[in-house]
């Protein structure tokens, strides 16, 4: 068997498989076509276009499908939501729109009801903290720590090493903040900061867990 024959055989098998797979989904594809059409009507309706004729035709084409329960639950929900969107744009003073609104009500009566969205809102657990105050507090204490005289004449990398040791040993988050600021400063000035970043991450992981460390 030539290579071409093998490929032709494979082509036919794959095409056959895909055709059968799609055939099995025929019902869903048909339902999708209906919903997609209604989606187009709903979009046009929201843009203020006249949709009465298309909507009337859609109802006449799909009433039988609804009566014979050929829509799945999720499809019914999609249709109900779209009809809800369309309904809000119909002008009841126009007789044709009024008739379509009645048809929408009839579909609702048959169970095509939009899903109600329930939104639960939770109050903040605590009053908003003074973030700016916290930041300036960290910065002020960081400056005081660096200017305490303890680090006189030492290179910034060696000072950072000390600050990281304090960050690991002490509860005060100021050291973590200061180490982060120093690392960023060193990065901006072209220093290799990889090992320091790793140490800071380890400290963060240990202190706050993985979520806060990212």
């Amino acid at each position: 068997m030539s290579r071409l024959e093998v490929l032709k055989g494979l082509e036919s098998t794959l095409q056959g498989f895909l055709a059968r797979a799609v055939e099995a989904e025929e019902e869903r594809i048909d339902a999708f076509r209906c919903i997609d059409k209604l989606d187009g009507i709903a979009r046009d309706s929201l843009r203020g276009r006249l949709v009465s004729a298309r909507l009337g035709s859609w109802f006449s084409q799909n009433t039988n499908r609804l009566e014979t329960d050929r829509f799945s639950k999720s499809e019914v929900t999609s249709i109900a939501n779209l009809l809800g969107d369309i309904r809000s744009g119909l002008d009841d003073s126009d007789p044709e729109s009024h008739k379509l609104a009645r048809e929408i009500e009839r579909w609702r009566g048959k169970g095509v009801v939009p899903k109600r969205k329930l939104v639960l809102k939770l109050k903040p657990r605590s009053a908003e903290r003074d973030l700016l105050g916290l930041l300036t507090g960290f910065l002020t204490r960081g400056v005081e720590h660096l200017e305490s005289g303890e680090f006189e004449g030492r290179h910034l990398l060696s000072i950072l090493d000390d600050v990281l040791k304090s960050a690991a040993a002490k509860e005060d988050k100021m050291y973590i903040h200061l180490a982060g600021a120093m690392i960023y400063f060193l990065k901006m000035n072209g220093y290799k900061i990889g090992p320091f970043v790793r140490r800071l991450r380890e400290i963060e992981n240990e202190r706050f867990g993985h979520i806060n460390a990212e």
Binding site: Q15, L18, A19, A21, V22, E25, R28, I29, F32, R33, I35, D36, D39, A42, R43, S78, L82, D85
Partner: peptide, 20 residues
């Protein structure tokens, strides 16, 4: 309105049916 991704899935099935 319909979800665009879901729409794409069905459009893919339709395209297969039309051998596109």
């Amino acid at each position: 309105m319909l979800n665009e991704t879901e729409k794409a899935y069905f459009k893919a099935l339709l395209a297969i049916k039309e051998m596109d």
